[in-house]
């Protein structure tokens, strides 16, 4: 109950702060739609050149996938590692460490409020793209019921993953470069360039052994009805395992990192 009350107050404050930057929110929405649409357009061109499909994906499937992926990546986005580098280097973390509330909660509230504000602009655009590309969704009620936990787990996993990376700032001054490199890896293995099912040979196997796909491609595939519910359930279980793993990792890294913190400046 205490945490709920804190979150209500934090969200009230954060929503006001986020709502002040309309231009930033607009640009963000634009940016988050442009990239998947470029990939979608490329895959549509490839599919058309090959007689209408690539593997099991035709143009309407690609549209469904990239639209679902855009929504998922929007709801999963976590950018904390980029800010935390400065917070540690300049000592801005100090005031938050002095409060009897783990700093992760401030970041979580900021993350949620930003998504609430930006989703308002994103959803109509996604709807428009879906209609224009005749996107195919084979979603059943079972898929929708699976999508909810899958989406939540993906968002939590992405957030924890981000925090583990962020915590490297206690040791590495330019820790955002760690995020930069991992972002590139996620580009391939998260399903941002292509659906995981289309990754050639061993790359597909690797993708399912790494955490990136569980933050993006897996919930996207479930949302568009691209996996059968039994396999979907298995994938959600794998997501839960990754969440547990990163939660444990964060506990260890954070505890060790705070000992290293030198609270520079003040």
């Amino acid at each position: 109950m205490k945490l709920l009350r804190i979150y209500r107050a934090l969200l009230t404050a954060q929503l006001q702060a986020t709502a002040q930057y309309r231009a930033q929110a607009f640009l963000y929405v634009l940016f988050s739609v442009i990239r998947p649409i470029v990939f979608l357009a490329a895959w549509v061109a490839v599919a058309n050149a090959r007689g209408g499909s690539v593997g099991s994906f035709d143009v309407a499937d690609f549209a469904g996938y990239f639209i679902a992926l855009t929504l998922v990546s929007h709801l999963c986005m976590s950018w904390f590692a980029w800010e935390f580098e400065q917070d540690v280097a300049q000592g801005n973390l100090s005031p938050r460490l002095l409060r009897p509330l783990h700093p992760i909660h401030y970041a979580a509230a900021a993350n949620i409020s930003y998504k609430i504000v930006t989703s308002i602009g994103l959803l109509p655009i996604l709807l428009l793209v879906a209609v224009s590309f005749h996107a195919r969704f084979q979603t059943t009620l079972e898929h929708l019921l699976l999508f909810i936990p899958s989406m939540i787990l993906a968002a939590v996993l992405s957030f924890l993953f981000d925090w583990v990376q962020a915590s490297t700032a206690f040791w590495i001054t330019r820790s955002s470069q760690v995020s930069f490199v991992l972002g590139r890896v996620s580009f391939i293995f998260g399903g941002q360039i292509a659906p995981l099912a289309l990754l050639p040979g061993v790359l597909g196997t690797i993708a399912y052994a790494l955490p990136f796909g569980y933050m993006l491609a897996v919930p996207a595939d479930i949302l568009r009805g691209g996996v059968d519910p039994a396999r979907g359930l298995l994938l959600v279980g794998a997501q839960a395992l990754w969440v547990l793993l990163f939660y444990a990792a964060l506990q260890r890294v954070w505890r060790a990192g705070v000992r290293e913190y030198s609270a520079v400046g003040a």
């Binding site: 107050a9 934090l10 404050a13 006001q16 702060a17």
Partner: peptide, 16 residues
């Protein structure tokens, strides 16, 4: 929090 009135930050502190 720089972008909002302090009164709102105080409400957060009240809960914390």
């Amino acid at each position: 929090v720089w972008d909002i009135p302090a009164a709102d930050s105080f409400r957060v502190l009240q809960q914390i």
